[in-house]
Amino acid sequence: MAERSALSVRGIGRFTTDGVLRLGYAARFIALTLLHSGTSFRRFGLIIRELYFTGVLSLIIILVSGLFVGMVLGLQGYETLQTYGSESALGVLVALSLVRELGPVVAALLFASRAGSAMTAEIGLMKATEQLSAMEMMAVDPIARVVAPRFWAGVISMPLLAAMFSAMGIFGGYLVGVVLIGVDEGSFWSQMQSAVDFRDDILNGVIKSFVFGVAVTWIALLEGYDAPPTAEGVSGATTRTVVTSSLAILGLDFILTSFMFRGV
C-alpha cells in the first residue's frame, strides 16, 4: 500500500517536472524563433512562399465554412428574432457573432486542422528524413530557415483568414436572411453599420485572431520540431497539434473575451 502511494506520488512528480520542462522548452523554442527571424524579413520571399502554403491553400476551406456558418446564423437568427418582431436586427446579430467570436475562433480551429497539422507533419518528416540535420551540417540554422518563415506566415495569415471567414459569413447571412427569407435589405445593412464598432468589435476580433495565429503556429512548429523521427512519432505529433491547438484556442478565447467584452 505504502509502496503504491509512493509510486503515485513519484508519478505526479514526474508529470509535473515533465510539464515544466516542456513549457521551458516551448518558451526557449519561441524565443529562438523570434531571435532568428531576421533572415525571414531580409529574404521576405521565404515568408511569401509559406504564406501561399498556409494562407492561400487554406482559403477554400475557410471561405466555404464561413459561408455555411453565416447561412446557419441567418436561419437561426431569423427564427429567434422574429419571435420578438426584431428580424430587421438580423444583420447585427450575424455580424457581431462572426466578427467577435465565430470568425476568429472557427477560422483558427480550421487553420489548426488544415495548416497547423500540415506544418507539423512537414517539419516532423523533414526531421525524420534528416533534412534538418543536413541543413545544420550545411551551416544553415533550421530555426532561421525553416521554422521562422512558417511562424510569421502563420501569424500574418491567421487574421486575414479570420477576416475573410467573417466577410463570407456575413454574405451567407445576407443570402439566407435577405435573398431567401426576405428581410428588408436596407435595415439589414444599416443596422449592422450602426451597431458594429470598429474598435470594440472588429479590432478586438483581429487581436483575437492574431493571438490564435501565434498560439496555433507555435504549437504546430514545436510539435513538428520535437517529433520523434518515426512514422508513429510524426503521426502522434500531428494529432497533438490539432488537439492542443483547439484547446488553446478555446481557452484563450475565454480569457480574451473576458477582458474585451465585460458587458460595460
Partner: peptide, 25 residues
C-alpha cells in the same frame, strides 16, 4: 556531408538542392 539516404530537401528541385548552400552562404 552525405547522409545515409541523401536527405535531399523534398520541396526543392535537384537544381535548387545543389544551389542551396551557394544561395545561403
Amino acid at each position: 556531408m552525405l547522409f545515409q539516404f541523401g536527405a535531399l530537401f523534398t520541396d526543392m528541385t535537384v537544381f535548387d538542392n545543389v544551389a542551396f548552400q551557394m544561395r545561403e552562404h
